[in-house]
Every structure is written in C-alpha cells, then in structure tokens.
C-alpha cells in the first residue's frame, strides 16, 4: 500500500486543517462566565464532532486537490511455470500450408496451426509469463513479458496475419533474449522459436548470441514447421553441399547445440505434430517462478472529494442549526479578555 500524489505541492495546504482547532466552527456568543453554564455530555460530544468534521473538511479538500492515488508499486508474485519468450517467424512462407502452397478450402496454413496450438498452450499455462517477438526482415517486439493472458492471446492471435519477406533469425533471437534478460528473477526461462525455415546467422552475430545465451540461462525450443520437400534439420548433407547457405536449418541446429544450453528441436510436418510438440514443451517446463509486477493505480481523489462534500454538508447543517443566543458576539479573532487593557497601558 503506497500513496502517491498527482500534485504533491498542493499538500502544503493540509496544515490549514488545523484552523478549526484554533478558531472554532460556530459564531461565538460572548458570555459573562461559563461557570454558570451546565456541563453537558452531549454538547461536548457535538463540539468534538464539529471540530473533527471541520478538520476533515479542510484536510480532505486539500488531499483531494493533491490528487492522491494508491498502488502503482511493484509486487512479487509466484507463478507455476516459466517465463516464455515466443519468437515467431512472420515470413511470408508461414502463410502457406505444410504442403507449401497457399491454403485452399479447409486447409490450414502453418501460421494458423501455430496460432491455434500456441493459444492453447498459453491458455493452459495461466501462471506463466509470456513475451512475444515476431521477426521477418527485422524483429518486432510485440509484447514484453507479462502475465496478462488477454494481451498474450491477442499477440498470439495476430501471428497469422500476412507476413513479410525474409527471415532474419539472428536479430530475432537477440531481441527475444533481451526480452528475457530484462527480468533478473530466479525463474526458468524458455525461448520458444517457431519458424518454418532458418537463415544464415552472421558469424559476428553468432558470437554475440553465444555470450548472451550463456548469460541468460535459457531453455531453447525450436518448433520447426517443415514444409514438404524442403531441407530439414536432420537431413544428411550431400557431399559438397554442407554449407550454411545450402542447409541453413541443419547449421542453425548445430549452432544451437554448440551453445551448451538445454535445447530441443521439434521438426514437425503437419498440424497434429505441432500439437504433440507443444504438449511436450508444456510437460518439460513447469517450475515455480517469482516475478514482479506493477499494480494498477487507484485514484482516491473521488473518495476524498466525497468525504469533503459530506463533512461540508454536516457543517452546513450545524450552521443552519446554529442559534444566535445573544446580540453581542465577539468579532473573529482574539477573545476580548486576551486583549491588553488599553487603560492600564496608558
């Protein structure tokens, strides 16, 4: 529970709340001697209540002006699962079917299948935190790590939109890693790469990725949606064709293996296999995670304004009920007796 203020400088007005303690609320009637006024419990109670109400009126008005709000602080939450960065290929080929042609009739594109399966996955893992990064020619940070399921599902739902051209997997990986390394918690981290192909990673970028992977301690899963008749991870190379340019998937796999991190590649060739692969990832990744989150702020201005209004109304009621008993009353300020005698000073 923390309080913050929109205009903290207006809090300087709050000491004004002490005024009713000094001045009183009602018009004063001078009386020769209070000793002859009977002591009355109810009157004393009302007197206290009036003073308190007046203090509350001024105090809550000043607070309402300052615009108090509660919350907005970071809280630690414990979830059961992992921090998962979904790194999703948005290249144009994802919009094709596993057969390598635009979907027709009831056919499902690779992106469609990935979307459906990932949505299922996200729904089942309520306590995970997800971040989403899309990549094609360049990576797009779509969603930072969060446990807001609606946002995650929305981000995932958008992955079957028509994609762009190329597949710059190196920068995509770097972005997804930066997403994960923002949070220095103790939880297990998962990088789930969904792509239907691979690309050559520049040796310089490879070096950077190597150090980042080593620092981030991440479990890497590669869901490779293989199009029929394209090169795969486990294809044995023909002699003389074992170059990253000719067989990018195989060489990416080799690169991932050389990182010495928990890594598993799923090479799937139809929508059913996608589901099986995702289910396996789900099985593998259940650890308690601790994460911090910013609470939503709650505006308390209304509460204090209502309090000020209520207490003002109470004061108005008291003023209406106020009786002018005597014609004489002191002007606001010092009591008569406190004034020094003019004559004696002379």
């Amino acid at each position: 529970m923390s309080l913050s203020f929109a205009d903290p400088q207006l809090l300087w007005l709050t000491p004004l709340a002490a005024l009713p303690l000094l001045g009183g609320v009602l018009r004063r009637s001078a009386f020769p001697s209070l000793a002859s006024v009977p002591v009355d419990g109810l009157s004393r109670l009302i007197s206290l209540a009036l003073t308190f109400t007046a203090v509350a009126t001024i105090g809550s008005t000043a607070l309402a002006l300052a615009g108090p709000r509660r919350g907005g602080e970071l809280v630690e939450k414990i979830g059961d699962g992992a921090e998962t960065a979904l790194l999703i290929d948005r290249s144009g080929s994802m919009n094709e079917t596993f057969a390598g042609r635009p979907p027709e009739g009831g056919e499902e594109s690779k992106a469609n299948a990935a979307r459906r399966v990932l949505q299922d996955y996200v729904r089942r893992r309520q306590h995970d935190r997800f971040g989403v990064v899309g990549f094609s020619t360049s990576p797009i940070r779509m969603l930072p790590l969060t446990d807001k399921m609606d946002a995650v599902l929305g981000a995932v739902a958008a992955i079957d939109r028509p994609g762009l051209d190329y597949t710059d997997i190196g920068r995509g990986l770097a972005t997804a890693l930066s997403l994960l390394s923002e949070d220095a918690g103790q939880s297990s981290r998962v990088l789930l790469l969904v792509s239907d192909g691979a690309a050559v990673i520049d040796p310089k970028v490879q070096q950077t990725l190597r150090t980042t992977f080593a620092r981030t301690r991440v479990n890497l899963y590669w869901l490779f949606l293989r199009t029929a008749n394209s090169t795969g991870i486990s294809d044995t190379p023909k002699p003389g064709e074992d170059t990253p340019q000719a067989m990018p998937e195989r060489h990416l796999d080799i690169f991932f293996k050389s990182l010495k991190i928990p890594y598993k590649a799923f090479e799937v060739e139809n929508p059913g296999a996608v589901e099986a692969a995702v289910a396996e990832i789900g099985r593998l990744e259940t650890h308690p995670i601790v994460y911090r989150e910013r609470l939503p702020t709650e505006d308390l201005t209304g509460f204090f304004a209502a309090l000020a209004l209520l207490s003002s109304l109470a004061l108005v009621a008291a003023k209406i009920f106020e009786a002018g008993l005597f014609t004489s009353s002191l002007p606001l300020g010092l009591p008569e007796a406190a004034r020094p005698s003019r004559r004696r000073a002379a």
Partner: peptide
C-alpha cells in the same frame, strides 16, 4: 440550537 459560547474573562 447550537451555541458556541466564549467566556468573557
């Protein structure tokens, strides 16, 4: 009525 009195002395 509500009366607020002040002792003159």
């Amino acid at each position: 009525g509500l009366i607020e009195m002040q002792d003159l002395e």
